[in-house]
Amino acid sequence: MTNGGELQLIREQGWRIGFVNLMRREISRRFSMRNWLIQGVIWLVLLNLVLALVLEAEEGGQTITAGVTAFILATSVLAPIGMVVAAHGAIINEKKAGTAAWILSKPASRIAFILSKFITIGLGFVIIVIFLQGLIAYTQLSVFGGGLIPAFPFLGALILMAINVIFYLSFTLFLGTIFEARIPVLGIPIGLIIGQVFLLAFLGNVSEWLPNLFPGSLSDMAIQTALESSTSAPWILPVFVTLSLTALFVYLAIVRFRSQEF
């Protein structure tokens, strides 16, 4: 094999092989200005317009509390659903279109294939939907409150919501390696998001700490964190559980994808 003078043959080994190239493609695909503008406007309407309406409707001293609660609740439900919609075709589309087989006929590791999608989809979504919308919401809340609201607790709440959506990304990617059709990949995580709302209420009646074993409890925790409410909830537990489940689903997605044939 000739390299044509200045070109060097790639030297990466193991799982890293093809990673940089796949990352570059995913970034150019997902981080385009047009994509960001469309996403930004959609989420501005879905999250910050809701917040603006709540702030307009509320009167008296509870405006900020109601606004923070509304924003975090809306983000906790809509952002994971958005993440599932954004990620559900990431694996399946490539399998169906034959591009996964094409990529894997080149020197590219299957781990690099999964990780490049996990990182770029996750990063793009968290920046646009959680932190950008969070910044706009923070500005709205501060304007309505007549002064800056505490920044670090609000940032802490955004981080908790980011952890929540990343969990759904890992779960959706994992399902994409199992199923060949879109419906289960889309339906199962959305069912989990909505189902958890009722499940956590039920579990909360059984035991106070039981909901903390589910990623859905991060939304309550985010509200308490943003509002600096005193809480007896062991915040580390749902964070640990959610991060562990995220790592587990990424691992399972890799294992499953490595065993697939094209």
Binding site: M1, N3, G4, E6, L7, Q8, L9, I10, R11, G18, V20, N21, R24, R25, R29, A97, G98, T99, A101, W102, K106, P107, A108
Partner: peptide, 23 residues
Amino acid sequence: PCFYEYMTARETLRFVARFYFSG
């Protein structure tokens, strides 16, 4: 043969070349 449909022929070849070469 399957490719990313949105890419041009040049972009496709560039993408493939980078699996083999750096420089």
